[in-house]
C-alpha cells in the first residue's frame, strides 16, 4: 500500500528551479533514504511534502488523500481540513530538533497528543513514558531541553513526533547538527524503528547508514532525481556517472 505518492513535483525560488519533475512512491513499511550534494533540493522536497513550503506543480498523495493535485494545468492544494488531516499522518524530525525550550521533555511530548488529539493527560503521559523508555531516556521526563546533550534532544524530538502515531516519519538530516560521537545513538534509534516496520523517509549524508538501514535509495542532484533503487545496487554498483562521482567524493572524504 502506498503511503506517499509524489508525481512531477516542481518548485521554484524565483528563477531558481529547486525541484524539477520529482516522482517517487513510498509504500508501507519502506525505509527510503534521500542522498545528494548540498543544494540538490533534498530538504526542499521534504519541506514541500510536509507543507512547510508550497510547491508550484505536480501532485502529492498521502495515505490515499490528495494533498496537492493538478487541476487544469495548475497545482491546487486541498481544503484546509484535508491538509490538517494529512499533517497529522506525517511526522517530521528536524535537523535542529526544534524542541520547545520552555517545556520539559514530558511537556514537549504530550503537548500535541493533549491539545491536538484531545487525549487525556494521564493517557498521554503514560504513552510518552513508553516512548521515552524506547528512546533510552527514562528519568529525563522533567529535564529541560537545554539540560540535555544534542543526541538526547534529538531523541526527544523523535519521541515527540512518534507521540502522534504518524503513518510516515520524515527525517531532515537528523544527525547533521550533532557531534560525530553522538550520531550513533540517533542512527541506532532509527534502525530500531526500521525493524518495527515504521515507514520512514530519511534525508541524510550518512552513506553507510543509508546503505544499511534503507531498502530504497534516491539520489538527487540539481533538483532532479538522478537515480533510485536498491541500496546495495546504487552504492555498490551504480552505472550512473553522476552518482559514481558523488559517492567517490564521499569515500575520499572519509
Amino acid at each position: 500500500m502506498a503511503i506517499l505518492e509524489v508525481e512531477h513535483l516542481s518548485k521554484k525560488f524565483g528563477a531558481n528551479k529547486v525541484l524539477q519533475d520529482i516522482s517517487f512512491t513510498v509504500s508501507k513499511g519502506q525505509v527510503v533514504s534521500i542522498i545528494g550534494p548540498s543544494g540538490s533540493g533534498k530538504s526542499t522536497l521534504l519541506r514541500c511534502i510536509n507543507q512547510l513550503e508550497t510547491a508550484d506543480g505536480g501532485s502529492i498523495r498521502v495515505c490515499g488523500m490528495d494533498m496537492l493535485q493538478m487541476i487544469g494545468g495548475k497545482a491546487v492544494y486541498s481544503k484546509k481540513k484535508t491538509l490538517r488531516e494529512i499533517r497529522l499522518k506525517i511526522g517530521l524530525v528536524f535537523q535542529n530538533f526544534n524542541l520547545f525550550p520552555h517545556m520539559s521533555v514530558m511537556q514537549n511530548i504530550i503537548e500535541a497528543p493533549v491539545r491536538v488529539l484531545k487525549k487525556s493527560k494521564t493517557e498521554a503521559v503514560s504513552d510518552a513514558g513508553e516512548l521515552l523508555k524506547k528512546m533510552g531516556l527514562s528519568g529525563k521526563e522533567l529535564s529541560y531541553p537545554c539540560e540535555l546533550s544534542g543526541g538526547q534532544q534529538q531523541r526527544v524530538s523523535i519521541a515527540r513526533a512518534l507521540a502522534l502515531k504518524p503513518e510516515i516519519l520524515f527525517f531532515d538530516e537528523p544527525t547533521s547538527a550533532l557531534d560525530p560521537e553522538l550520531t550513533g545513538e540517533i542512527l541506532k534509534v532509527i534502525k530500531e524503528l526500521a525493524e518495527e516496520k515504521m515507514t520512514m523517509v530519511i534525508v541524510t549524508h550518512e552513506m553507510e547508514f543509508a546503505r544499511e538501514v534503507s531498502n530504497h535509495v534516491i539520489f538527487m542532484d540539481g533538483g532532479h532525481i538522478i537515480e533510485e533503487g536498491d541500496p546495495e545496487k546504487l552504492f555498490g554498483d551504480t552505472q550512473n556517472d553522476r552518482t559514481k562521482r558523488f559517492l567517490s567524493r564521499y569515500k575520499n572524504n572519509f
Partner: peptide
C-alpha cells in the same frame, strides 16, 4: 523566536492560536 518553533508547532498540528 526562531522560525523552527513555528514549523515544529505546525508539524504537530497545533493551531495558529495554540
Amino acid at each position: 523566536i526562531p522560525v523552527g518553533q513555528y514549523e515544529a508547532a505546525s508539524m504537530l498540528g497545533l493551531t495558529r492560536r495554540q
